[in-house]
Simulated assay, not measured.
Amino acid sequence: MSNQPAYKVKLGLITATVWKNDGFYSVDIARSYKNGEGNWMSTSSYSHSDLLNVAKCAERAEIWISRQLNGAK
């Protein structure tokens, strides 16, 4: 995998990061939050209020990947 993501989309505290690896793509979806010391952290655990943004980020990542695979820019 490359050190840089191929694509990233963020909605609220949810981020989908697309990675390109030897002709295929993988996607990480994470939620950002601040810990007790005020440092930004991320988790793959989501609350009910996060789910719509998780779905939207996943959809946007899928659309971007489909465009790449079909040669559209």
Rank of each mutant, 00 (worst) to 15 (best):
A16T: 01
E37L: 13
E62R: 11
S49E: 02
G36D: 06
A30M: 05
K8L: 07
G36Y: 04
M1I: 00
E62D: 14
T43C: 12
K56R: 15
A61K: 04
E37M: 09
S42D: 05
K56W: 02
K34P: 01
D28R: 05
A55C: 04
D22N: 14
N39F: 12
E37I: 11
G23F: 08
V9Q: 05
L52T: 14
K73M: 06
V9N: 06
L11Q: 13
Y46C: 06
V27H: 03
S44T: 14
N21R: 12
S49R: 03
S42H: 15
Q4H: 11
A6N: 05
W19F: 13
K20E: 15
N53W: 00
G23M: 10
A61Y: 06
N39L: 11
A58Q: 11
N35F: 09
A16E: 07
I14K: 10
S45Q: 12
P5W: 09
N39P: 00
V27M: 02
Y33G: 05
T43D: 10
K10L: 03
Q4W: 07
A30E: 08
I65F: 02
G23Q: 10
W40E: 15
W19A: 01
N21L: 10
Y7M: 06
A61N: 05
S26E: 12
R60S: 13
N35A: 11
Y25D: 02
K8D: 00
S66C: 04
L11W: 02
P5I: 05
L52P: 04
T15F: 03
I14W: 05
R60M: 15
N35I: 13
I65A: 01
I65D: 03
L51Q: 15
K20W: 05
V27N: 02
N39G: 08
D22Y: 09
L13S: 12
H48I: 07
I65G: 01
S26D: 13
K34T: 07
I29E: 07
L13E: 12
A16D: 09
T17Y: 04
N70F: 01
V27I: 15
G23V: 09
M41L: 12
S49N: 00
T17E: 13
L13H: 07
I63F: 09
A16C: 01
A72T: 01
Y33F: 15
P5L: 08
Y7S: 00
S26T: 15
N3R: 10
N39E: 13
C57A: 15
